[in-house]
Amino acid sequence: MSIKTAVPTATDGLELLASAVLLLDREGRIVYANPAAENLLESSVKGLKQQKLSDLFLNGSQLAAVFEKAAAHQFDDLRQDLILDRIGREPLWVDTLAKALDNPATPVLIELRENVQQLKLEREERLFDQSQVNKELIRNLAHEIKNPLGGLRGAAQLLELELPERHLKELREYTQVIIKEADRLQTLVDRLLAPHRLAHIVSDVDIHEVCERVRSLMVAEFPHGLTINRDYDLSIPQFRGDKEQLIQAILNIAHNAAQALTDRIQSGDANLTFQTRIVRQVTLAKVRYRLALDLHIIDNGPGIPDDIQERIFYPLVSGRDGGSGLGLTLAQTFVQQHMGVIECESRPGCTDFRVLIPLP
């Protein structure tokens, strides 16, 4: 009885690599792509084969130039950072390695590694720019609404004074609706304008005091069914800041999480975790900091719907009925006034809001 054994091939080792690897023929067409390349390029080997790698991108001429030099053996290997544009999808930020091979059939190997740090920086810059646009839009809109509201409320009050006595009771109900709705809108406008007032950097802030204050408020509001876990790094130093603004920012995030946990709270297995750490050499809003606070607010809820994940910090965007869509907008603004940023990663069963603030 004979036992057949699989014969190893030259590409077996490439299958296990986490980085995308492609082998190209003399015309620059893809002959082989490992599983990581399929994931990165969002296409199967069957779909990639015989396509020119440079044709997959709008600015593929950069890759074509690298291929030509490698195929001509002008170098053994060449590393470059590239931004590869794609139709209808986000650009790829990649570290590229082109290597010349002594193989006539596949003379060039291209390795692509997604540049996670550059992606993060680009996302932060985009978030900051969007936030600045939102601030200007909100400020102008709020001022445009505020003045007519005062006149509307005043007119309703004067009208109420002029109502005939015999119809006062039934007609007063309508004027009160106008007055109360004007007051409600005034409160909304005040909340829209509030984050544009500068932070009062008046005290040393202990982030754990902030978290404990928020925790006590959450326990009071949700005494049953919600477990709040604490995972603190007590070595984190104090920093200058506006304690009340930070309490409000963390409370807004935690409160949003609790509302998303409604079903789990009723089942008694809802979890909310406050975790603090220090990160080193972090870039926030294009500025490099030696140390930064790394605060996570994590819940085990259903996750943020895919269609709003990229817009959750926009004003008036809410994932629940009846939500104002201002809580996360205010939280982001308050944190940005401390030179920080809020990031979010969400999937079913785990939503993680990450607050980064520079430390002295």
Rank of each mutant, 00 (worst) to 15 (best):
A100E: 02
F57R: 01
E165A: 14
L234V: 14
L188H: 10
Q245I: 05
Q74K: 13
N252H: 05
L326E: 00
D55H: 08
P360G: 10
V45F: 07
T283W: 06
L328K: 00
I312H: 00
M339S: 02
A257M: 06
G13F: 08
I236M: 04
K286W: 15
K52E: 04
I265Q: 04
E38W: 10
V189N: 05
A254V: 03
E15R: 15
L161W: 15
S203D: 06
D306A: 13
L188C: 13
E125T: 13
D25S: 11
E136G: 13
F239S: 00
L168V: 08
L251I: 08
G28Q: 01
F239Q: 03
Q50W: 14
T11P: 01
C350T: 12
V7E: 01
L84P: 06
R230W: 03
L193P: 06
N271P: 03
Q186C: 11
I247S: 03
F75W: 10
Q117N: 15
H143G: 13
E212D: 05
R113I: 12
H167D: 11
L161Q: 12
L121Y: 12
G340D: 00
D85C: 14
R184F: 15
R191M: 07
D242S: 01
I278E: 06
K69N: 03
K286L: 09
Q275E: 09
T262Q: 14
Y232K: 03
L141A: 13
L22R: 08
P8C: 02
I357L: 07
D204A: 08
Q337R: 03
E181G: 05
H296C: 07
E173V: 11
A65I: 12
E68L: 10
R280L: 14
Q176C: 06
H73V: 10
D76L: 15
N34A: 12
H338C: 04
L359C: 11
D263P: 15
R264Q: 07
E27I: 15
L97K: 08
A10P: 10
G151Y: 09
K46S: 10
S19R: 11
E122R: 04
G241Y: 02
L226M: 03
L161D: 05
L23W: 09
R354Y: 12
V214E: 00
C344R: 12
I178S: 03
A292G: 04
T9L: 09
N39K: 15
E144D: 08
A155V: 10
R197F: 14
A257W: 06
L188V: 15
I308H: 05
P164W: 02
L291E: 08
H200A: 14
S346T: 04
V205H: 07
E160P: 08
G150F: 11
L119N: 15
N59C: 04
E38G: 04
K4M: 07
S43L: 07
I83T: 09
V94E: 00
D269I: 12
L328W: 00
L291S: 11
A37S: 12
A257E: 03
M1P: 09
L137Y: 15
V214H: 01
G151A: 05
T5G: 01
L284N: 02
R354D: 03
A156C: 06
D306G: 08
R166F: 12
L188G: 09
Q62S: 07
Q132H: 05
P223I: 02
P148V: 02
Q117I: 11
Y289R: 07
V202W: 13
L359I: 14
L41K: 00
